[in-house]
């Protein structure tokens, strides 16, 4: 129970998938979960979701 509460405290919302996760990148205060980081590494410019990543990554410097 105590461990669960501690987990909740450290969970952060990912700027890309909007899901809460514990581990991932923290760039200038913007959090990207491991799953989304993995997707970015495999991302191709012709992929359908590429435009979404372009938009969402702007949050990194808009927030900072």
């Amino acid at each position: 129970m105590q461990a669960n509460e501690e987990e909740k405290v450290t969970m952060v919302k990912c700027i890309l998938c909007k899901k809460k996760a514990i581990q991932g990148l923290n760039i200038l205060g913007s959090f990207i979960c491991h799953e989304c980081e993995r997707r970015i590494v495999a991302l191709n410019v012709a992929d359908e979701g590429y435009d979404y990543y372009i938009e969402q990554l702007k949050l990194i410097w808009h927030r900072s």
Binding site: V41, I54, L57, W61
Partner: peptide
Amino acid sequence: EDLISIGSIGLIKAIKT
């Protein structure tokens, strides 16, 4: 801003690989 976002994708790939 689009260019910086695209470049950031390249940077994340670079650090990972």
